[in-house]
Amino acid sequence: MRFLERLEPLLWALFSAGGTIAALLLPVHVFLNNIAMPLGWFRPDDYDYTHAARLLGHPLVKAYLAVFLVPTLFHAAHRIKLLPHELVLPPSPGIATPIAYLIAAALAIAAVVVIVLAP
């Protein structure tokens, strides 16, 4: 906890960067990839394995996705850690904070690994 307190300026900078990145990028990704694509609103054959693999195969796309997802995860952790406290529920921020950042860090590593490996 002491360690995390000393990192507050860095974590806040990451929170701000992630908040801005998520605000700018997230809605279009959710809409196209997770709603329009399953519903087949745009040329359905665009979304087969070859199209996705060609996109993800590009190093710029990989870098873009890492810059999109990693700060977004730390942004979210910064808010989630306080949600139980704000709703007057356990666990206390002292317990929730390290857990939230550990989960964010684990998901960030997982994201980078799968982005590098795919396709």
């Binding site: 997230l26 990704h29 990839n33 993800l56 979210a76």
Partner: peptide, 21 residues
């Protein structure tokens, strides 16, 4: 503030999608 939980869920869905890819 609760939107952050859904941001995380979205990231998890993307991670799963890329893992399957």
């Amino acid at each position: 503030e609760a939107s952050s939980a859904f941001l995380t869920v979205f990231a998890v869905l993307y991670i799963v999608q890329f893992a399957l890819l």
